[in-house]
């Protein structure tokens, strides 16, 4: 049994503030890199399959399978091939992000009203022009929602990646587990967990901000 010592926790934070911030930064970094890769792959694949029913359902079904696999299992499977650290972490996070991003891309592109598509075509735009110039901007708010969901998902998953030596605040949680019974166990685990919750809340707020400033003013509610 371990009681919470609030003063002790504050002292702990003071002493290790540099290291905590460093871990928080790494946590954000790995999530951000994974999301960028996932957006490139996810939106790209979404643009390729949105109009083809069979590949579309195949892609969404496989992305769904990836999301169903428990994170520790997925990370573990990657270790024999890719070793420990950043690489398996990134791959796992990208795989988890794909479903929300691909699905929302497809939904967003398909949600463009046929009348809009037809008038774009009628003005002489080719299919690629319509896709990039009309559909993508109109679908952007929905795609961004997918990225936001993916961000929440990966921030939590990155915590487990610390077990395969992935970067970030998850390391504090596992250090807490490793020092179970010692005075600092609770401080370590609490720092890691609270830190991740705060990161998740901050990132979510950032997405609200991004959505506001990257959505065409005509599409805003």
């Amino acid at each position: 049994m371990n009681q919470l010592d609030f003063d002790g926790l504050l002292t702990f934070w003071q002493q290790r503030s540099g290291d905590i911030l460093d871990m928080a930064f790494q946590h954000i970094a790995v999530v951000a890199v994974a999301l960028m890769i996932a957006v490139v792959i996810g939106v790209g694949v979404g643009m390729l399959v949105w109009d083809r029913p069979v590949p579309r359902s195949a892609v969404i079904a496989s992305a769904g399978v990836a999301l169903t696999i428990p994170s520790l299992a997925l990370l573990a499977i990657l270790v024999p091939a890719f070793g420990l650290g950043w690489v398996p972490t990134l791959i796992a996070l990208v795989l988890y992000s794909l479903l929300p991003i691909v699905r929302n891309t497809v939904v967003g592109l398909r949600a463009v009203p046929p009348a809009v598509m037809e008038s774009a075509k009628g003005m002489g735009m080719n299919p690629l022009g319509v896709l990039v110039g009309v559909q993508l901007p109109m679908a952007w708010p929905i795609i961004l929602t997918g990225v936001r969901v993916a961000a929440q998902l990966t921030i939590g998953t990155a915590a487990i990646a610390a077990y395969v030596a992935g970067p970030g605040l998850g390391q504090y949680i596992f250090k807490g587990l490793a020092s179970l019974g010692s005075k600092n166990a609770l401080n370590l685990a609490l720092t890691g967990t609270i830190g991740i919750v705060i990161l998740a809340l901050i990132v979510d707020a950032i997405f609200v901000f991004i959505a506001r400033y990257t959505t065409s003013r005509g599409l805003r509610a």
Binding site: Q152, I155, G156, I160, Y163, F174, A189, I196, V197
Partner: peptide, 8 residues
């Protein structure tokens, strides 16, 4: 929900 399972 935002709390990582491993943390809980």
């Amino acid at each position: 929900q935002a709390t990582p399972a491993v943390g809980v």
